[in-house]
Design a protein around this nucleic acid. Structure first.
Lengths: 343, 343
DNA sequence: ATGAAAGCGCTAACAT
DNA sequence: ATGTTAGCGCTTTCAT
């Protein structure tokens, strides 16, 4: 008893045809204003709701996109999705979300789901576990518009929106140097993920630019987690020459470091400086408040959707032409708070 | 060049018909195992991907649900959605998300979007701004399964999943009493929203149960925001008889209170106790760590979906029968941390 | 156990 | 400016 009314019913009501009603509803230029008004009135009166499914089947456009994220629990991705949804809804697109929980198998399942849903395009951030990218290549070869965001891979010929992680790492490290810290450590993330590798490179770049030799004792192979941050401090403070500051690959890692430093009664920022990466929500509210690098999350979402929409539209118009590869690199924004305020 | 392969192609390949292929793919009992195997093999070989849109159009089931949330920025809703998506994906449902930004107009738009997408059911948390519920009544009258979560309305005959906010407020307040605080204030939220009103009632109930007279000077009309928390403390600390503890309607409000108390050099928890509500992520990591009431977010998401699925399935089978109204009330879980640890 | 045929609601060529 | 007709890919009677 719910979705009964169709354009045929409206047509019957007005002694015209479904085609005319369809055109009127879609504001087709060839339809007279009077007909449009009569159709609009009848549609309203009969509580007509367009059936997008039927429309999609016929037109081949679903006006929906799929978004693959590693985890909705990570604030960062929630925030990017927020940006995506904003622009998508404005442009009349629905958004399907699929979480991979960092697993490649779920990534594949998500893509299948999106294929079956006949999404018009896909935005994806690659799972940590993924090292075989054939499922993404498959999507590309099917001609389905796809754009990576944040966790991208440059070797696949797929457009992407990322922050300049090298520059972020560079700025974070340089800030610690300028604050007067002397032995600056880095707690890194899994190096097969490009963004984490870039942050490490940025760290090294900043040290070298300031004529500081990179000491690999001070580069701890960590991860994005409180535990990794604690473990890193535990390990490094036992070194013959312990560090007096750390750039952590992510805010949660930095938080772990701060917790462990506090447990050891090491004063932040006086004796030890800390800076993270991501600008997670909690950083502003902990004590000491956490210096960090903002990744322009909402912007990243909007840019990703904008790029995808471009692909979708060029795909549609010039069916033959290959859409050009694009790479949008957002500038990271340093946010300096108490945890690194030595001066 | 992407989604070319259809069941007709598979049928041709195997010298059979689309009907048989369709049945084989859907594991229809009347189809022989041999045929099923041959179909499965051909489908795989031809890279066939089922077209859910066509399937939905014909079968009238979209295997998707819509979720209306006030804001994806609020951690709470992100977490509930996480719970929803988990169960939904397991059950083969896609999830569409629509954010209302607390506005009734967007709420209406979201519901229209969902109607057009022919979702099989809807989960919704009501916007702050909404006081006219006719759009929800319309959904119900169309026979579309709908369940409220968290921000519910009991007068509409719509099932819901909520936490027992009265009990949460009661437990929070009682805890402060038991810790030995004497003048316990409450920073409340907008009272037309039931959950906030319930928390206030729980506060009053706990005071009365402990023979403490409710002093309305100590009930500040606030909101869910850091600013409201600060303003409340500013106001109440100027009273002739200021409070020595506060139960804030939400963690962000509690955070504002803590910030203001710190600014005034009032020691927490020794001189002043604070407890919030929501168990937002940051509460564990601030100094002092924040006592709060956990709302079972992921559970709420799962329960909501479970309830909705029940509605969807009964709707399908016994078309005539009215599905019974259900109200799931989750138990709030107190989490006591430093901010209220007087003893 | 399988086939034939109709149709879900809409859009898009091709008329007129 | 509007009508006619066909068909998107699938599921579902109704046959056999």
């Amino acid at each position: 008893m719910s979705y009964k009314v169709t354009i045929a019913d409206i047509a019957k009501e007005l002694n015209t045809t479904a085609a005319t009603v369809s055109r009127a509803l879609n504001n087709h230029p060839a339809i007279s204003d009077e007909t449009k008004h009569r159709v609009a009135e009848a549609a309203e009166r009969l509580h007509y709701k367009p059936n997008k499914i039927a429309s999609s089947l016929r037109s081949g456009k679903s006006f929906s996109i799929g978004v693959i994220i590693p985890s909705a629990e990570i604030n960062f991705f929630g925030s990017v999705v927020h940006g995506i949804e904003n622009l998508a809804n404005i442009n009349g697109y629905n958004v399907l979300i699929y979480q991979t929980n960092e697993s490649r198998d779920f990534e594949v399942k998500g893509l299948e789901t999106f294929l079956s849903a006949r999404v018009d395009g896909i935005l994806a951030s690659i799972a940590k576990e993924t090292s075989d990218y054939s499922h993404f290549i498959d999507i590309k070869q099917r001609g389905i518009p796809i754009v990576f965001f944040d966790r991208a891979n440059d070797d696949l010929g797929i457009s992407s929106v990322v922050v300049d992680d090298y520059r972020g790492g560079y700025l974070a490290t340089e800030h610690l140097i300028e604050q007067g810290y002397r032995r600056i450590a880095h707690i890194s993330g899994p190096q097969h993920i490009k963004i984490f590798n870039d942050r490490l490179k940025g760290y090294m770049g900043a040290l070298q630019a300031h004529n500081i030799k990179v000491d690999f004792d001070l580069v701890y192979a960590g991860d994005v987690s409180i535990e990794a941050g604690k473990a890193a401090i535990k390990h490094m403070m036992e070194l013959p020459h312990p560090p007096d500051a750390v750039f952590a690959v992510e805010d949660f890692t930095a938080l772990g470091a701060i917790k462990e430093l506090k447990d050891r009664n090491i004063k932040i920022p006086e004796q030890f400086g800390v800076i993270g990466f991501a600008n997670e929500l909690f950083g502003e509210h902990i004590t000491p408040s956490l210096s960090t690098i903002d990744q322009q999350t909402v912007n990243m979402g909007k840019e990703s959707f904008r790029l995808l929409l471009e692909l979708i539209n060029t795909n549609k118009s010039k069916a033959g032409k290959e859409a050009k590869l694009q790479k949008v690199v957002l500038k990271p924004v340093p946010i300096f708070r108490q945890s690194s305020a030595k001066r």
